[in-house]
Design a protein around this nucleic acid. Structure first.
Length: 391
DNA sequence: AGCAACCGACCGTCGCTACC
DNA sequence: GGTAGCGACGGTCGGTTGCT
């Protein structure tokens, strides 16, 4: 862990350069979400996507967090964030870090701690959730270069992060491009500006099949089986967590999906029901019972239906179909086929399919470059704090 | 085939206890 | 008396099963 550092760098104990303040156990009966009192920072608030909580009771000023203070979550994930916003109260299990030494830039400390905490988290034993102790925080040592070097490293990492963000934005744009190509070629289905014939999905489908309800295994016995979490909301495939299933000859005939066929998620939460994607792998896979397979006249038609179902209009239609159901929403094989769809000439559909394929090819190479950027970023992080970065 | 209850993994938070 | 440590409660969510 404590490797050799270059000239001018030094391992220093964080507790010598900074003070830790731990949050108090504020009475939860004073918690509210109506904005009464002062904002309180609980562990969940170090992550995005949680509603803000306020505390309406008495408190000591020393528990207040100021803008740009560094906060560390001590339960569950050991998150670290720079607080932005008005002063707020520090709840129990959250720690505030105040750099007191002039030899350490807060931003440098913040960035080096991201990795250090991740390493500690990886090594922490746990029963239900991981706990970070104050004792442990006090033993943390960080490599400290001269101030000038710290500044350089911080600005390099900020730039690298910016690049990562740009890449992510480009990926998002590609997704939008797919949607606008559909809209451009076939028009808003509600208005049907090109005056295409309007039909139903059933007009394009030869046959539908439900998948198998047999239990899957994770050990890799048998062939891979597609489940609902393998289809993303956007209609792409995420094959990162596959399960497997053993099928006999007869079941193989019923429960395999082949290249160019369309899969539709029939049971899920209201927002996610109806996720659909065209199967694009050469080797067939099995599919689970909550997916419905639509066999169409040709792969280009599958692509067109998927484009329709994944368009803004398609999503809206699906959500309305499932609107009266509480909890798990359901759309069966008959109902999918009754969804209205424009029926453009086959030449237009073929052209659409060719464009989609081209965009997907680009997307794949983009994903490759995203991966490379992420790897580069990790290497950069690694090198930045061991002094291997040439500045 | 349709549906909802059930299951279990996940994990943030509570609050008891030991210790200074 | 206050704080740090930590076991476990219980909510949530994705997925599965079993009843009709």
């Amino acid at each position: 862990m404590e490797n050799k550092l270059p000239e001018g760098w030094e391992w220093k104990k964080l507790s010598d350069l900074a003070d830790f303040f731990y949050g108090g156990a504020f009475e939860s009966s004073y918690f509210n979400e109506d904005g009464k009192g002062v904002k309180i920072i609980r562990i969940r608030n170090l992550k995005q996507g949680f509603t803000e909580t306020y505390y309406a009771g008495e408190y000591d000023e020393s528990y207040l967090v100021q803008n740009s203070d560094i906060l560390i979550g001590m339960d569950g994930e050991f998150n670290i964030v720079k607080w932005t916003g008005k002063p707020a109260l520090l709840n129990q299990r959250v720690c505030k870090l105040i750099i007191k030494s002039n030899d350490l830039l807060p931003d440098f400390a913040y960035r080096s701690l991201v990795k250090i905490l991740k390493d500690i988290e990886d090594r922490t034993a746990f029963v239900t959730v991981k706990h970070l102790s104050a004792k442990h925080l006090n033993t943390i040592k960080i490599p400290v270069p001269p101030l000038e070097t710290q500044q350089k490293i911080v600005s390099i990492l900020e730039k690298a992060e910016e690049t990562k963000k740009l890449r992510a934005q480009a990926d998002e744009l590609t997704q939008k491009l797919l949607q606008s190509v559909f809209l451009e070629m076939f028009g808003d289905p509600e208005k049907n500006p090109y005056g295409f014939k309007i039909g139903e999905i059933r007009d394009l489908v030869i046959e539908t099949q439900y998948g198998t309800s047999k239990k899957a295994n994770e050990e890799g016995r048998g062939i891979p089986i597609l489940r609902m979490n393998n289809i993303t909301y956007e209609g792409n495939w995420d094959l990162s967590s596959l399960k497997y299933i053993e099928l006999d000859h007869k079941e193989m005939e019923k429960y395999l999906v082949y290249k160019g066929e369309l899969l539709f998620n029939r049971t899920n939460s209201k927002e996610l029901v109806g996720k659909s994607a065209v199967y694009r792998e050469e080797e067939p896979m099995a599919f689970a019972g909550y997916l419905v397979k639509l066999i169409t006249k040709s792969p280009v038609i599958s692509e067109f239906i998927a484009g329709h179902l994944n368009s803004k209009y398609g999503k809206m239609y699906l959500e309305n179909m499932a609107k009266n159901i509480v909890g798990m929403a359901n759309i069966n094989a008959q109902e999918v086929q009754r969804i209205p769809i424009v029926l453009p000439p086959i030449e237009t559909i073929e052209k659409y399919s060719r464009i989609v394929e081209q965009i997907r090819k680009n997307k794949n190479s983009q994903q490759q470059s995203s991966l490379e950027i992420n790897n580069l970023f990790n290497t950069l992080m690694q090198k930045a704090f061991t002094g291997e970065l040439v500045l």
